[in-house]
Nucleic acid binder design. Structure first.
Lengths: 108, 108
DNA sequence: ACGACTTCCCTAGATTGTCAAGGGGAAAGC
DNA sequence: GCTTTCCCCTTGACAATCTAGGGAAGTCGT
């Protein structure tokens, strides 16, 4: 495994999309949400997060708009698009398939 | 997830080491073993396998020696070293920790 | 004896995803 | 005014995997 880094490569997009299922959120909050929902195991670096958000928006999986945060700061809010919904389903299926395959190998 | 590629990045070393728990094996057989144990879900490309074996041997996790395969071909047999045993434990713990963290996020 | 196929090894180059390490602006609290 | 927190972003390096090759040697069918 990579020396450092608390993420399983390839899962970040799925994690982001899943966080956004709870409603529209700005980037900073997405990172916090993932951190919390994972019981503080997963930590999303900003240098990973923002490029990922950019990719996802380019891909049409999420859409953004500027607004004001609860703390009265300018923030870019993201929400899932219809295309993103489909991506969630696909990627979750892929994750389930692959991670359970790994588990099978490790169990035998 | 990556357009193609059936592997979760970061898991290959662990899969290889786990296959070798069953006894000394040559590279080609390691790939087949992983493929079979995963119910044909995981496919290890040779272009990923051999560099990984090289890394692991450099790292002292496995050791190799030339021999003859069951099919009467020259083959390089690998076995786990003591250091490799420890790596298995560490990486499996890491995998369990991270994959269950992902599952937690996806479930909530 | 020839060709096709399989088994086994290996490498070079491109691609991708993440990380480390920065920088910056603006509100809040002291 | 100073520091801290919140929020955005970029650049360059790095590690892991894949694609797409190449090669040698045994087996099998004809």
């Amino acid at each position: 495994m990579g020396k450092s880094g608390t993420l399983l490569q390839g899962t970040l997009d799925l994690l982001i999309l899943h966080a956004l299922r709870r409603g529209s959120m700005h980037g900073y909050a997405i990172a916090q949400t993932i951190h919390l929902l994972s019981d503080e195991v997963l930590k999303v670096e900003e240098g990973s997060l923002y490029p990922a958000l950019y990719r996802l928006e380019l891909d049409g999986a999420i859409a953004s708009s500027w607004g004001m945060s609860e703390n009265n700061r300018k923030a870019k809010y993201y929400e899932i698009t219809k295309r993103g919904q489909k991506l969630i389903a696909d990627q979750q299926a892929q994750w389930d398939k692959l991670s359970s395959a790994v588990d099978r190998v490790l169990a035998r």
